[in-house]
Nucleic acid binder design. Sequence first.
DNA 1: GAGTAACCGAGACGGTACGTCACGTCTTCTG
DNA 2: CAGAAGACGTGACGTACCGTCTCGGTTACTC
Lengths: 215, 215, 215, 215
Amino acid sequence: MEEQSRVGRPRDTRLDAAIVDATIALLAERGYREMSLAAIAERASTTTAAIYRRWGSKSELVASAVFRTDGDDVVADTGDLAADLATMIRWASEKLCRPAAVAAIAGLLSEPRSDRRLRTSSAAAASQMVAERLERAKEAGEIAETVNTSVLASLIDGPLLHAAFSGVADVDDEWIEDLVRIILVGVLPLGPSEASSTSASGRSSLSSVKEAVRQ
Amino acid sequence: MEEQSRVGRPRDTRLDAAIVDATIALLAERGYREMSLAAIAERASTTTAAIYRRWGSKSELVASAVFRTDGDDVVADTGDLAADLATMIRWASEKLCRPAAVAAIAGLLSEPRSDRRLRTSSAAAASQMVAERLERAKEAGEIAETVNTSVLASLIDGPLLHAAFSGVADVDDEWIEDLVRIILVGVLPLGPSEASSTSASGRSSLSSVKEAVRQ
Amino acid sequence: MEEQSRVGRPRDTRLDAAIVDATIALLAERGYREMSLAAIAERASTTTAAIYRRWGSKSELVASAVFRTDGDDVVADTGDLAADLATMIRWASEKLCRPAAVAAIAGLLSEPRSDRRLRTSSAAAASQMVAERLERAKEAGEIAETVNTSVLASLIDGPLLHAAFSGVADVDDEWIEDLVRIILVGVLPLGPSEASSTSASGRSSLSSVKEAVRQ
Amino acid sequence: MEEQSRVGRPRDTRLDAAIVDATIALLAERGYREMSLAAIAERASTTTAAIYRRWGSKSELVASAVFRTDGDDVVADTGDLAADLATMIRWASEKLCRPAAVAAIAGLLSEPRSDRRLRTSSAAAASQMVAERLERAKEAGEIAETVNTSVLASLIDGPLLHAAFSGVADVDDEWIEDLVRIILVGVLPLGPSEASSTSASGRSSLSSVKEAVRQ
DNA sequence: GAGTAACCGAGACGGTACGTCACGTCTTCTG
DNA sequence: CAGAAGACGTGACGTACCGTCTCGGTTACTC
């Protein structure tokens, strides 16, 4: 969304909303590739020129339309990791599982310069904040020291991405609760016994991990 | 890849390979959107007509080039769930984390009728086999009864998708091992204490799960 | 050449002229079949899309480029049939004997639906006007009543077509003058003797015509 | 039609006829441009390879199929110019006015190398023979000395070409008879009065020609 | 009678042109 | 100066045709 100069006729703000709405609707209906800017303009009762006055390209429009962060809290930090993790996953599911979002992610990644545009803006910032939140949890002893926070971060968005892309499972509250439970169990510190067994063997083999947990 | 009849001049099999190789190379270099069939044809020293003789569209070519399953085993089933899970994740990482695969997934999902074509062919079949493997593990008592296998399936591909799309973490053996450990711990049955505590409270709240694990 | 609406950016009229010029030049150089729209576009420093915005097809472009009638007088009518016939043949030779015109006529007739498009527009209109001019001459007694005006009309363009297609004779002023002389002599009323002889025999045999003329 | 070597399996002569018939039929139905060799092959129940074994190109096939001269007499020479001219025009009408012939002429002229291929073979030979016949008529005094035989030759095929191309008039026996009458009258020597008047004025103006004829 | 050379059908091959579509820019008129 | 309309260059897409080539298989002359 580009700035506009102070002088001259101001932009019709109803057009902004109409364009964004049309973009989201058409993304869901047709997908990224078969959604032309002409179709967006027509549904918004305007022209492509008006769109290009506001956004620099199709991908920029889609990115800002679908992933506009109206100053949302992207990271929950109440102090209770279990609750916060559940909250973040729920938020992520609301963000990623919409049909328009699936189409947008796929479309933006299929574009060439998506690296700079997309990631640097919203996604990267959010990732950074999530990483910091998890790092704090680790320092607070809420997460086992052996847990790689990079891996843990991938467990928040990743399963949702898979579900949204494959379209197999419908992600409802129960599904999310099940997911959170597995992650939490897998991530929590297991007390003295856990500490000793893994410290003894270092990066133990998977079967030894299994043994340790059973105890 | 369409069948060809027995009569007439047979197809030049070197062309098939050259086209597939060119497709994978250009996907990695330029991404889905900026990879034209003309460029593929040029690199494979042929013409677009020869490509269209073999595949019906750009998306069909990409799907079969990147996700050709040469009769691969898509599911590991040695009886040891821990080892099999690790194997499947490793296989998935080899399949999904290549640059060409990332570009292909994004591109195919940005196309309109990818649902029917792509998923029904390879991905859906693989998902089905994974689901069956997990269901067997559940019946064998290797997985806690409370674990939703649909959620568990999304934990195999999902984190890899996230890592590949965000490009933040580089997925190496250590990363995969960390992932497997978290999933295993979160999924394994926890013995009598777990059974009693969860059976008592049914779908317990997340905080009660936390308590149960700590014991 | 399609109409364009009043609103919006107007067409670049220099492009229209450049395209038409390039079409005529390339028709003469290469002929209809070996003249591609891409070559026309290149010589006119534009693209095929700009051409298709103006004309619906290659044949339509060629027809309007070669046979554009800028409100020309297609029929001479000074009252003197001899002079008018000479004028019309001279005009026709200028229209039909250009290399581009020869290529255009052949090309358009080799296309399938040229009937409706080409003839109904310019050629048919011109033919109609010529027929009317000849009919008036007949009523004025300048042409013998036995002369079929349809045949006479074919004597204006026909010999020029033959000369242009066969490429044998070069059509210069002397050639045209010779042609006009033959037609005029064959067409003029021959006075009382002619009237009586032909009325006596009705549609006389050709040899009797010969006799009649000799008298 | 290319030669074939003496050894090996001989060609299926029924195919030759079937291909020629299919070519003529499709030329009349669809025109030159929209007649594909694949369609010809299909109608003749064979393949394009069999066609290319016999003819070198589409244009060569069309030329030989439509204008095959099975040793026909292309020039009538009974000694009676009037009758011969009528005969030649009648023959020409049978040759040129078929729908397939119109399509063939247009198509061949729209091809690039039609000069060498088409004219050198049949048309040029025929023209040469016609020219010689007319020259003999002139020497025999059957044609006025002022008549240009090149012009006269163009009066045989030309009007028929015009009629066939424009499609306006249907060329029947009466039409041809009318045409022959006009040409003959315009071409015959007019006796002593003609000789003196034209010798006096040389290339007289058209109006003086008119006067001379009226006498 | 065995060889062989050319035929036949089918269909893939390289090459070229066609006509369509979308993107992002530019130019006019109107408010 | 915004907005509507639409032309502009660029470039990809998918189709069609031409003329050639390569198969497996067949047919008739030749040795």
